[in-house]
């Protein structure tokens, strides 16, 4: 087996897979996409200059792969239509909640559902920051943004999550007493 592949697999495979899964919210698609990530990596590996870390480079590729995947999901008609429809400028999916999530407690399920209401960028920031444990600067490098943009996006996405979590709470209620905490 290729030594480069071996090394990348050992170090980052699960992180990248994790990222792709929460981005596309479907395991099979995530499997295909991680494959695609490797192909792109091999194509451009000799162009990798070491300016950024391997990790951020790999994640930025994964993100591009995910974006391309969503673009492919939509037909050209929808894409044209989307240009005129500013209100729904975000990607949504209808895949069932995977098994790993359903066995978790109620709040986790809600969070997972709420992530759907975030935009691509917001979701990417949330996943990179909290699930993949990247620092603000690492996230900024991965997305090619400034750190302040990462911070504001992170803030906004948490706000979206909070709003929808409350909606869920109102709709379904919590059997257990929810501790109120001041902000």
């Amino acid at each position: 087996m290729d030594s480069v592949f071996d090394e990348l697999y050992q170090k980052y495979h699960h992180d990248v897979f994790q990222f792709l899964f929460y981005m596309v919210r479907n395991k099979e698609h995530a499997e295909d996409l991680v494959q695609e990530v490797y192909i792109r990596v091999f194509k451009s590996y000799n162009r990798f200059e070491g300016k950024s870390s391997e990790k951020t480079w790999l994640f930025s590729i994964a993100r591009n792969v995910a974006i391309d995947f969503f673009r492919k999901q939509k037909g050209w008609k929808e894409r044209i239509f989307e240009k005129f429809d500013w209100s729904s400028n975000q990607v949504k999916d209808d895949y069932p909640i995977p098994e790993e999530i359903t066995v978790q407690k109620e709040e986790i399920k809600w969070i997972y559902k709420c992530l759907e209401f975030c935009t691509m960028d917001q979701r990417a920031v949330i996943i990179l920051r909290y699930l993949n444990d990247l620092s603000i600067s690492e996230t900024a490098k991965t997305l090619g943004w400034t750190e302040s943009k990462v911070k504001t996006t992170q803030h906004r996405s948490l706000k979206v999550l909070k709003k929808h979590m409350e909606l869920f709470y109102e709709k379904e209620g919590l059997t257990s007493e929810k501790v109120r905490v001041e902000r």
Binding site: Y22, E100, Y130
Partner: peptide, 11 residues
């Protein structure tokens, strides 16, 4: 915290 508690999905 809640987000961090989300399960690790394995390939």
């Amino acid at each position: 915290e809640l987000i961090r508690q989300m399960p690790k999905i394995q390939d």
